[in-house]
Design a protein around this nucleic acid. Structure first.
Length: 282
DNA sequence: AATTATGTTGCGGT
DNA sequence: AACCGCAACATAAT
C-alpha cells in the first residue's frame, strides 16, 4: 500500500515516539511476517527510526536493526495509554482495540506502550539484521527519488535500453526508489506525458520535463502526510493522510479531467491500473 | 457466486 | 539485460 511519502511519514512519527524507549519483548503472531530471532531484541534501547526506499529501519546503539517492509497492506500502529498522542490528539478508537485479526507482530515497550504490525495480506515483513545486512537490503534499490543522487543525468542514463512504458520504468525501484502506482500516475499527468509511451520514445526534452515532477509529487505527498483512501494507509497514530485531496488522475477513471474536462481513462501497464487524461497527456 | 481488483516486490522462464 | 507472467495472501467490489 504505501509509497515513499507514506513510509517516510510513518518513520518520522515512529522516531518521535520510539526513540529512547526500551524493548520489553517482541511477540510474533505469524511466523511468515518475521525473519530472525525476536528474543535478541529484548532489553535493547531504540536509538532512532529512519527510512530508505520503502523500508523502515529501527536503529539501536548496537550493530543491529529491525528493517520493516509494509508491502501492500502493512501498518505500524503505536499505542500508549499514558501519553497523549500526536501533540495532544487522542488515539483513534480502533487503535485502542488492537491487536486485531490482522495483527502479525506486537512490540512491547518497557513503559507499557505497544507497537502493532498489522498486515492483512501478509506480504510485509520484519527482519532482524546487522548494519551490513541492512545495507545489503538497501543495495537492491536505486537512489531515493527525493535525494540529490537521483539526478537528471542519472535518470537519462537509465532510459535508452528500455522499451516498456515510461510509467513502468518510473515505478522500477532499481531505477529510482520510492515511486509507486499512485505517484507515478500523478507525476506523468503533471508532466503531460502519456504513461503508455515507450520509454525509449521520449525525447530528452520530455524526460527533462518529467524529472522535477517526480520529485514534486513525492515532496507534496510527504508534506500531506501521505495518501489515504478506504482507510488502508494510516500513520502510526491511526490517522489518515491528505494527499488524496490533491490527486488529479489516480482512481479518477470516468471523471472529468481537472484541466480540460476530458474523461480520465484507465489502462493496464505491467499489470497495474494506470490512469491518465488522453487529451492532456501526449 | 465466480471473477477481478488492490498503494509491492521477487522469481523463473524466454 | 530486459521483459513477461505469475506468485506470495486476504478481502471487497463487480
Amino acid at each position: 500500500m504505501p509509497e515513499l511519502p507514506e513510509v517516510e511519514t510513518v518513520a518520522r512519527r515512529l522516531s518521535t515516539v520510539l526513540s529512547g524507549k526500551v524493548i520489553q519483548g517482541v511477540s510474533v503472531l505469524r511466523e511468515k511476517s518475521f525473519q530472525g530471532d525476536p528474543s535478541r531484541l529484548t532489553g535493547l534501547t531504540i536509538k532512532s527510526v529512519s527510512r530508505r526506499a520503502k523500508i523502515i529501519s529501527i536503529n539501536f546503539h548496537e550493530d543491529i536493526k529491525i528493517i520493516v517492509h509494509l508491502k501492500m497492506t502493512g501498518q505500524l500502529i503505536y499505542f500508549s495509554k499514558k501519553e497523549k498522542i500526536g501533540g495532544g490528539h487522542p488515539s483513534q478508537d480502533w487503535v485502542s482495540k488492537l491487536p486485531s485479526s490482522h495483527t502479525r507482530i506486537v512490540m512491547d515497550l518497557s513503559d507499557g506502550a505497544k507497537l502493532f504490525f498489522n498486515d492483512m495480506r501478509v506480504f510485509g515483513w520484519w527482519k532482524v539484521v546487522s548494519g551490513e545486512g541492512a545495507e545489503l537490503e538497501f543495495q537492491k534499490y536505486g537512489p531515493d527519488v527525493n535525494t540529490d543522487a537521483f539526478s537528471l543525468e542519472y535518470f537519462l542514463s537509465k532510459l535508452p535500453n528500455r522499451r516498456v512504458s515510461i510509467k513502468q520504468v518510473v515505478m522500477d525501484n532499481k531505477v529510482v526508489a520510492g515511486i509507486g502506482n499512485i505517484y507515478a500516475s500523478e507525476a506523468l499527468f503533471l508532466a503531460k506525458i502519456d504513461p503508455t509511451r515507450a520509454t525509449n520514445s521520449l525525447s530528452k526534452k520530455e524526460v527533462t520535463r518529467l524529472f522535477p515532477f517526480l520529485k514534486k509529487v513525492i515532496e507534496d505527498g510527504i508534506n500531506a502526510g501521505g495518501t489515504t483512501f478506504d482507510g488502508k494507509y494510516v500513520d502510526v497514530f491511526g490517522f489518515a493522510g491528505s494527499y488524496q485531496n490533491q490527486l488529479k488522475v489516480y482512481g479518477q477513471d470516468g471523471e472529468n479531467c481537472k484541466i480540460c474536462k476530458s474523461i480520465i481513462e484507465k489502462v493496464k501497464l505491467g499489470g497495474r491500473g494506470s490512469y491518465f487524461c488522453p487529451s492532456c497527456q501526449k
